[in-house]
Design a binder for these strands. Structure first.
Lengths: 353, 353
DNA sequence: GGTTACAATGTAACCGGTTACATTCTAGCA
DNA sequence: TGCTAGAATGTAACCGGTTACATTGTAACC
């Protein structure tokens, strides 16, 4: 019975090549203190033995793992995969790895995930509403480079990459109002989610700025899934006075709303206009194409990775917390404006503080 | 200037608690050889110091990383995120981590990625057409538990999770032929990609079975992106004798074809029917909804993770290579059949060998 | 009381690398 | 030829855990 073949170590290579482990190590770290000849010899032996250095041992003695821990609240849909893609691209370029973990819906799970990653990663990219600074993990994070994505209670303590939710939401509303809409519904996201809160705040702010009263029945709750958008659409259609426009806090929900309206034979945008947020790929392909706020989601990931690696490289634990606000722009399509053929794009002011 | 706070180690905890490191280690590994009282004491000290065990050290001495390496050819689109989601769910459940790496388009990059993960993971989930068994990495992989996704030259040497591409493609073709189509085009994927090859083989086989001649001009090449599908659509429309149906080897390309046809005012399915493969989420939402082969993509990831963890748990290096074939089913929608209102589903035989 | 058995804890080797420092070798020069 | 600087290589400590084995403590039994 063949048993686990012991992995070949640096000692084995050194022995076979007739040198010390230090020299082998030097060769594999491209040190220039090794004779060309010795180097060749060692490389050839290593190749013959299929030697590949052990990363755990390396991490341990170097106190660097060259790995970034990435914690996401979920993994469904394009939004998250784009974030991962963006981060992976940068990580790859900078010779870092990505340790990904999703599916931690609650605080305890998040903390377990962070604990399990401790010592396995050099820093974190963290996207989660649940993040309390006074838990063990919260305190732990203070001593580890961390970049927060979008928003969270913990913003302010760490670097962060965010979207100007309020500004962009106001822009959507301004667009709808400019089309003559006054009875505008919003499908908001789960309470506790700051992106959701901020988009709702933008909704309120723009209505107020235009002296339009807020009507409670026009505010319905979703949870960022297509299904919840569909349900929200149902609720809105059942109202005595239907809205003439719906602003869904993300595209998935907007697509749910559209599906509901299509099932019920409601014409979009003639009877009710619909707008979303995120501009995921599908949004430009569906019929009617969806007006949305375009955010380059993969940038969210790549900027986070870039910033994190920057902090990691610069060992001097600087205390300056940097918050990068992602550019976004309103993309007007057929779900709000039937006449436009080519997509109209309205840029939105962007900034980096 | 505050310098890097040295992470607190097991020795520190032991010292402060007045015990040896062995005892502390035992507490954190839930050994039952420690007095309840001592255990309490140690836990309290550890909590006070924010002690979290170092995973690299742990991996090194235990020779287990509790991490799965996942190598994907790309990261664009829903397909890959679903795979990751499926794998993450299982990994999480079984207390494993997921080290993800994409963006290795060529063989060299793939090898670098694998090398970099060596010692960092207990096993691999690998999806890549480029995989030669005679390179250093190829030989290396033989000694590390590995599960291959979908297909690859290396299939046969390792466990694998695959889709019955040939069977499912034949089913699509059978469906189109049963609708009376005889002039059926295929948009195939890149040569070298086995999924692409197999779907093409299914196309050929079913035509042959129905005594329909193969026409070269009806076979156009794409690369699994929406853009390439659009281009393929263009080419097909420019033919002197247009096809009456198009089978795109994946949904992204099918969506590209649809977009092209819409731009050109071609009615689908009246003038040309279109079918895809994968049944990604968008496919049921677009207009017209897309006939496709439904595969539960996240299962691809979760089955791979399950199988890998199973192999890892069972140390006895068994030589039985297991190949799991994923169930799939044809979902008929409006892009081929205008009359169906409710989705028709035709199940496809499934098997596990 | 003196063994004995077993439970609780400690000691130190080991996992596989990196690297400061020590040692050896070589060439250049007086 | 002898001396010296610097290049090439070796030695061994260290990274932070785990764990086999040694040691100590305690209760039970004769």
């Amino acid at each position: 019975m063949p048993r686990q073949k012991a992995r070949v170590t640096i000692h084995e290579v050194a022995r076979r090549a007739g040198v010390s482990v230090a020299t082998v190590s030097r060769v594999f770290n491209n040190s220039d203190l090794v004779t060309k000849q010795t180097g060749e010899k060692i490389r050839s032996v290593a190749r013959r033995l299929n030697y590949i250095p052990n990363a755990s041992a390396r991490s341990l003695s170097m106190k660097r793992t060259e790995t970034i821990g990435m914690l996401l609240p979920d993994m469904h849909g394009e939004f998250f995969s784009e974030i991962i893609r963006g981060a992976d691209a940068i990580a790859h370029k900078e010779q870092y790895h990505l340790l990904v973990s999703a599916s931690h819906s609650n605080k305890e799970e998040l903390e377990t995930a962070i604990k399990m990653m401790s010592g396995r990663v050099d820093g974190f990219i963290l996207m989660s509403p649940h993040l309390d600074s006074e838990t063990l993990v919260g305190r732990y994070l203070k001593s580890v480079p961390t970049v927060i994505l979008t928003s969270s209670e913990a913003r302010g303590m760490h670097d962060s990459i965010r979207i100007d939710n309020v500004g962009a939401a106001r822009q959507v509303m301004r667009h709808l109002i400019s089309l003559g809409h006054r009875r505008i519904a919003i499908v908001k996201g789960d309470p506790g989610n700051e992106d959701a809160e901020e988009r709702l705040a933008g909704y309120h702010a723009e209505l107020r700025a235009n002296s339009i009263d807020v009507t409670d029945e026009l505010i319905v709750c979703g949870d960022f899934t297509e299904r919840s958008g569909h349900a929200a659409g149902r609720i809105l259609l059942d109202l005595k006075y239907r809205p003439t426009a719906v602003f869904a806090s993300n595209d998935e929900m907007a697509i749910g709303v559209l599906r509901c309206f299509r099932e019920e034979g409601i014409k979009v945008p003639q009877e009710i206009a619909v707008a979303g947020f995120d501009d995921i790929q599908i949004s430009s392909l569906i019929h009617p194409s969806l007006t949305s706020v375009h955010v380059d989601i993969s940038d969210l990931g790549s900027l986070a990775a870039e910033r994190l690696i920057e902090v990691l490289a610069d060992g001097t634990k600087r205390k300056t917390v940097k918050s990068i606000v992602l550019p976004s722009r309103l993309v007007v399509r057929n779900s709000t404006l039937t006449t436009t053929h080519a997509d109209a794009v309205i840029s939105h002011a962007t900034s980096v503080q």
